[in-house]
Simulated assay, not measured.
Amino acid sequence: MGKPTVSTTMTNANQAVIWQPYVEDSASCHPAILVQVDACGLLILAQEGRDILIQPETLPELFRQLKRLAQHQQ
């Protein structure tokens, strides 16, 4: 699996789109993820009408846990 393609949208609005790569073993293609910053400085991950609000201070722990969980899949 290659790295996802990231594109910046509306640079002034602090947004980026992460396109998830097609994986042959997967039964379906997964939708892109929109990452943006709101007026309060919270990070917003959005996908198909669902949003997750993340405080920037929690990013180091979030990254650690995502890496840990991803290693269990390999």
Rank of each mutant, 00 (worst) to 15 (best):
N12F: 02
Q36L: 07
Q47P: 05
L45V: 04
H30L: 09
Q15G: 01
Q20I: 07
G2W: 03
Q65I: 11
L45K: 08
C40N: 15
L42F: 13
R68E: 12
F63E: 14
D38S: 07
V6N: 03
L34C: 05
V6F: 06
D51S: 14
A13H: 02
L59I: 14
V35G: 02
L45S: 06
P56L: 08
Q36N: 08
L53W: 15
N14E: 04
A39D: 11
I44F: 05
A27L: 09
C40Y: 14
C29D: 13
R64Y: 15
L59P: 06
T5I: 06
N14Y: 01
L66S: 09
E48T: 14
A32I: 03
A46V: 10
L62G: 09
A46M: 13
L43W: 01
Q65Y: 14
Q36F: 06
D25L: 08
Q15L: 03
D25G: 05
S26W: 08
P31V: 02
E24F: 10
A32Y: 03
I52N: 07
Q71T: 11
Y22V: 04
A16N: 00
L59S: 12
T5A: 03
Q71L: 13
L43Y: 02
Q74R: 15
V17Y: 00
T11A: 05
V37F: 02
A46R: 13
T8G: 04
A13N: 03
R64M: 14
L34T: 04
R50Y: 11
M1T: 15
V17W: 00
R50F: 09
E24D: 10
L69V: 09
S28N: 10
Y22P: 00
Q36M: 11
A13I: 03
T9F: 00
G41M: 07
T8I: 05
Q65C: 13
L53G: 10
V37N: 00
N12Y: 04
S7F: 05
C29T: 04
A13P: 00
T58C: 12
H72F: 12
A16H: 01
H30E: 07
Q65P: 05
I18W: 00
E48Y: 10
P4S: 03
Q15D: 01
D25M: 09
V6C: 04
H72C: 08
L45G: 03
Q20W: 04
I52Q: 11
Q15R: 02
N14Q: 06
L34Q: 04
H30P: 02
D51K: 15
P56N: 10
